[in-house]
Design a protein around this nucleic acid. Sequence first.
DNA 1: TATCGTTATATAGTTTAAAACATAAGGACC
DNA 2: GGTCCTTATGTTTTAAACTATATAACGATA
Lengths: 259, 259
Amino acid sequence: MELSSPLTLEMLGQPFLLEKRISLLHAIEEQGSISKAAKAVPMSYKSAWEAVDTMNSLSSEPIVCRETGGKDGGGTTITAYGKQLLENYAMLKREHTHFLKRLSELTDIQSGTFKTIERLSLQISARNQMRAKVVSVVCEDLNAKIHLELKSGQVLVSVITKEAVENLHIEKDQYVTVIFKSSAVLLSEVSDEKFEENRLEGIVEKIDTDLENAKVLIDIGSHDKIVSVISKEILENMKMEAGNPVWVSIKENNIMLGK
Amino acid sequence: MELSSPLTLEMLGQPFLLEKRISLLHAIEEQGSISKAAKAVPMSYKSAWEAVDTMNSLSSEPIVCRETGGKDGGGTTITAYGKQLLENYAMLKREHTHFLKRLSELTDIQSGTFKTIERLSLQISARNQMRAKVVSVVCEDLNAKIHLELKSGQVLVSVITKEAVENLHIEKDQYVTVIFKSSAVLLSEVSDEKFEENRLEGIVEKIDTDLENAKVLIDIGSHDKIVSVISKEILENMKMEAGNPVWVSIKENNIMLGK
DNA sequence: TATCGTTATATAGTTTAAAACATAAGGACC
DNA sequence: GGTCCTTATGTTTTAAACTATATAACGATA
């Protein structure tokens, strides 16, 4: 049993971007002309031209640049704006596909075993969310300890209930999302033994302070960043500055996983 | 700019449940016959009959029961299984709609301002997830304190970054999902002053123990349940039993919000 | 100026899905 | 047996979407 659901972006009530049109635009990008693109997709030149025309007129900025005449008879190219649009659609589509896949996996509509779904499409307040690979899953009776490898190669450990592991079908070598609140991130200038759980090394990138708290942005490598909110007092005791190395620590219990 | 995306459930590669067919089934449920339902939807009798027939033959169990002849010429009724299917589809659709709505809200494909989306469709390991109404939002410079009212009327307070509040567009009177780990839930037999943050009253419903830990299920009223995982030691000091009243406490910092 | 491959536009043909219409056949009930 | 309203199953019509085809305009280039 599968879920399918074509994604359509509407504009002023009119269909604007759809699967077919997107692939046409990609073909135009490759071929440099509507007529060649139409053959490649394939579809009739007329449909292709009309699709391009309606898209262009629905859009506030032109998506393609059409030129008639000239050495090769002219041609059509995608504008920078159009390329941006293609990228953005791809991102939307990626999210949508992921959602459908998760929903399919969780669903057995015949037996109705999917009653246990919590909200599946949640945007969460936790500021720290990053991809990681599951290195190992060690189950005890109630809890499970999961070793995770970040993009940078640094390792994190998360403790969640065994129930959650089963519910999310977390297994070795899979990719999951590591989630933790910025208030759960402890900082230290030195590799302090006091903070023994989940120690990561990073570089301070930016510090914002208000009357009581400080928000510290830390680069832990490979484009992963961590946000930490700590009290201003602690920060001041640490003489921390942008560019300095810093040690991060997060309690195993404060790390959640998402899929 | 709107996103639209009709949800289709496929079976053996064939379309099985779609919007149109679902509304037909609902009409049949009301009218008691295919012909009347077809008029109500509206669609031609033949299309309606064929839709019903293909659904029935794709399904492992019959969805409708068709009878010809008799006093009123027969009729068609939805089976219990069919009704279950309708409910399940409605749930899928609800999730899907919610997802699309969130995605729309976060997206401005023209300007490309939606680059900041984290994974939007995440299933999270946190065992405790429940709906709550936002009573108030008090922003400081970096953090915000949010008062939430559960179904039972009990109140929780969550502290998250102001950034998160803006990102999720959390406002008074909205409904959000409260999220916290079962390991963040502290228990006490008495209304202990020591656990001052987010104290809720509930009744112990079930206790599971392993060698080290204990998982306690607590009913806090209005069908909301909380799972707590605590060390076995603490549990044993508390002489806790199913049916007993219990006090729950969760640190404000450990409560996340989702939307 | 003639050439060429393109955009731009119109019109005729083709395919496809649905509606509309027509007609059996079923079976309780009078 | 006739009535009645339904399910079940064709055939025909209609409408929409798309394809195919034809043709004008364009403008750099030889």
